[in-house]
């Protein structure tokens, strides 16, 4: 299991567009990808679940990858967050 925490700086938060991109990105990996924000968590491969976390600018989220390609997934998702959010 791999995890990292990221602080959202995009002023719109995790809105539909980056959520869509995130779901696509997470979908590239076989491992499970879970997104945690506060006491809620969601499967990062499911867009409505991700959106319903209502992640806002300034919120911190934790991304947990678990499975065979968890290392790869964690590295590229981290880069994804830094670039898009």
């Amino acid at each position: 299991m791999k995890e990292f925490t990221y602080n959202i700086t995009d002023e719109n938060g995790l809105h539909a567009r980056p959520a869509g991109l995130l779901v696509k990105e997470a979908g590239k990996y076989n491992c499970s990808v879970t997104l945690k924000s506060g006491d809620k968590s969601a499967d990062a491969k499911r867009i409505f679940a991700v959106m319903s976390l209502s992640v806002k600018c300034g919120d911190s989220v934790t991304v947990i990858t678990e499975g065979a390609d968890e290392d790869n997934a964690a590295t590229s998702l981290k880069a994804f967050f830094e670039e898009n959010l």
Binding site: G20, V23, K24, D43, K45, R46, I47, F48, A49
Partner: peptide, 8 residues
């Protein structure tokens, strides 16, 4: 992406 949503 929404059309492919697992929950949906």
């Amino acid at each position: 992406v929404m059309l492919d949503d697992g929950d949906y």
